[in-house]
């Protein structure tokens, strides 16, 4: 809320020379990544390039072997995933990971336990403060479900939702933790062209409405090129390019490694 009033910090997220090795395999090598406040950045690359691994380093699932990550000035090394969520980084997963046996309402509701004051003892005592808090959470959950047109499903078990809505619910659930940075891991995977157009619109809407930064891992070039302000390209764990969509699209290394030359207007130029 106050983010627009304050001067934006030049980097919300700062990854410096991050390397991670699994045994002999270097999955990500010396990755530098900066995300400013209110920025939408795409992370692309072929399969196995290390995109999801980069995500997992930011969210604390993996600790980088070398290098440092800072978020809003706080070093993330040694922090558990739930602590990093607490600092203001929320994520979705490449393979949807909702709480399948919980209702849509509860899936979003649990995200609020991070920022609320009712704990175990209030839940046991069930005093006035507890009921006040639960009411407040309930209305906030319904509000955010309304914004994303999911409130008619609120009593449905998450696993019974249509696929597109499951993806959307996962994003809503991440937003409910009130993040400053939202990481989306292939949100368009498995979507049809119409759903992809809708998703593109949704991501733009989230960025405007919640004034947060978004890091988007995606294979679908239409989605990435359409909305990202800046794109980072990974190949074999190494950053091979970074720049605006136009710059990246015309970068010879990116074309060779990933895009293929059908994206170029003048295919001959790439061969040079």
């Amino acid at each position: 809320m106050s983010a627009s009033a304050e001067p934006k910090p030049d980097s919300l997220l700062k990854m410096q020379r991050c390397t991670i090795r699994f045994g002999g395999l270097t999955a990500v090598s010396e990755l530098d990544l900066r995300i400013g406040g209110d920025e939408l950045i795409g992370l692309i690359g072929p399969n196995g390039a290390g995109k999801t691994t980069a995500f997992n380093m930011i969210t604390g699932v993996y600790q980088p072997t070398e290098g440092e990550i800072h978020f809003a000035g706080t070093p993330l090394s040694g922090q558990a995933p739930q602590e990093i969520t607490g600092l203001g980084i929320a994520r979705t997963f490449q393979n949807i990971r909702l709480f399948p046996s919980l209702s849509v309402f509860d899936n979003v509701r649990v995200a609020f336990q991070l920022r609320q004051t009712t704990g175990m003892f209030q839940s046991l005592l069930r005093g006035a403060a507890f009921h006040r808090n639960e009411k407040l959470i309930e209305s906030e959950v319904l509000e955010i479900l309304d914004i994303f047109k999911l409130s008619r499903f609120r009593h449905t078990m998450a696993k019974n939702l249509p696929y597109g809505d499951q993806r959307r619910l996962e994003i809503v659930r991440a937003l409910a933790t009130k993040p400053k940075l939202l990481l989306l891991d292939e949100p368009a995977a498995g979507m049809n062209p119409t759903e992809k157009v809708e998703l593109t619109r949704l991501i733009g809407f989230i960025k405007e409405k919640f004034r947060i930064s978004v890091l988007l891992v995606e294979h679908d070039m239409q989605v990435v090129m359409g909305i990202c302000q800046r794109i980072v390209v990974l190949d074999h764990g190494v950053k091979i390019a970074e720049g605006s969509p136009t710059e990246v699209r015309n970068d010879a290394k990116v074309v060779e490694a990933y895009l293929g030359d059908s994206h170029l207007k003048k295919p001959a130029a790439a061969v040079d």
Binding site: T59, V61, A80, P81, Q82, T85, G86, A90, R91, F93, R97, L98, F99, P100, S101, L102, D106, R109, V110, A111, F112, Q113, L114, Q116, T118, G119, M120, Q122, S123, L124, R126, F130, N133, E134, I137, R173, A174, T177
Partner: peptide, 27 residues
């Protein structure tokens, strides 16, 4: 009482998916 509260829904989340629970700030 534990389970029927926002706090207590965390138990069910851990049951369903620990990785997703951690991503929601649940320990």
């Amino acid at each position: 009482s534990l389970v029927n509260s926002t706090y207590g829904r965390g138990f069910l989340c851990v049951h369903d998916d620990e990785v997703a629970a951690a991503a929601m700030g649940i320990n």
